[in-house]
Simulated assay, not measured.
Amino acid sequence: MNHLIVFAHPHAESFNHAILNTAVEALQSNGHEVSVRDLNKLGFNPVLTTEDITALREGNIPADIKTEQEFLAKADVVTFIYPIWWTGLPAILKGYVDRVFSYGFAYQYNAEGGIDKLLSGKKGLIVNTYGTPGEIYESIGMNDSLKQTSGDGIFEFSGIEVVDHLLFGGVTSPDANEARANMLDQVKRKFAAL
């Protein structure tokens, strides 16, 4: 299978990078083709401009958007790996969604007034980390909200079937080494099973 990982964390020594490396190793060990789009390393421009909107409406897809759409089109499975910052996506990933999951590529309205999900047939997985202890986010309903906004609001909206959404809380705790090792083991098992 062709697996696309869209990654959004600026620090090479981050726990998110450890998650990325674990996922890639697990997928490659099972013979999957893996493409990683590290948005920070690519210097991806997250700003959807008036010029972008005009070009997209005219069918003149800007080159950087076209490149990312080609990776998405080729993928059987799409994974987003990113930290939760201010209860949402990092700006660079939000901008990726704004620019790449564009009208006419990821979705469109049909003659009946419904929505055609143009990325149907693909599977999706989301992996998030956050510093708040996991039991707090769980108790206040934040985990469900994150699943709804990213899983339903981005993936399902465009037709990507969410197979799982891994949420890892408390990752910045100074005594979280054992917990982080268990999280990486969970990532390894999840991606090895895909």
Rank of each mutant, 00 (worst) to 15 (best):
I154A: 02
F155Q: 00
Q148E: 13
P133N: 07
L118T: 07
F105C: 04
G104F: 09
P133V: 04
L125D: 00
F168V: 05
V100G: 05
Q108F: 00
G121M: 08
R180F: 04
E135K: 11
G124A: 12
V163F: 01
V163C: 01
Y130V: 00
Q108C: 06
V171L: 04
E138H: 12
I154F: 10
D152G: 00
G121K: 12
S150Y: 07
H165Q: 14
N143I: 10
Q148G: 03
G104Q: 07
K147Q: 14
S120D: 07
E138C: 00
D144N: 12
G113N: 06
Y137W: 13
E138T: 13
Y107Q: 00
F155Y: 15
G169D: 07
F101M: 07
V162C: 08
A106T: 00
T149Q: 15
D116M: 03
N177V: 02
G153S: 09
D152R: 12
D152S: 12
V163A: 09
I160T: 03
N143G: 06
Y107G: 00
L119K: 03
F101N: 01
E156A: 13
F155M: 14
E138P: 00
I136R: 10
F101E: 04
M142C: 01
I140V: 15
G153W: 09
G153N: 10
E156S: 14
L166R: 05
G134Y: 07
R180N: 13
L167N: 15
G124I: 03
F105R: 00
E135A: 09
S145G: 09
G153Q: 09
G134H: 08
K117F: 02
I154N: 13
V163I: 14
T149H: 10
L118E: 08
D144A: 15
I126V: 15
N177M: 10
E161L: 07
G170L: 09
F157N: 02
A179F: 11
S102E: 01
I115H: 03
I126Y: 05
V163H: 09
L125A: 07
P174T: 09
T172A: 14
A179H: 11
G153A: 08
D116T: 08
F155H: 02
N143P: 00
G159D: 11
Q148Y: 10
E135L: 06
G151K: 05
L125H: 12
K117Y: 05
G114I: 02
I154P: 01
D164W: 01
S150D: 12
G151R: 05
V162F: 05
L167E: 13
E135Y: 14
E112Q: 15
K117N: 05
G151A: 08
I136P: 01
D116Q: 13
G141E: 11
D98C: 04
I140G: 03
S120R: 10
I160G: 03
G114A: 02
Y107L: 04
Q108N: 11
V162Q: 11
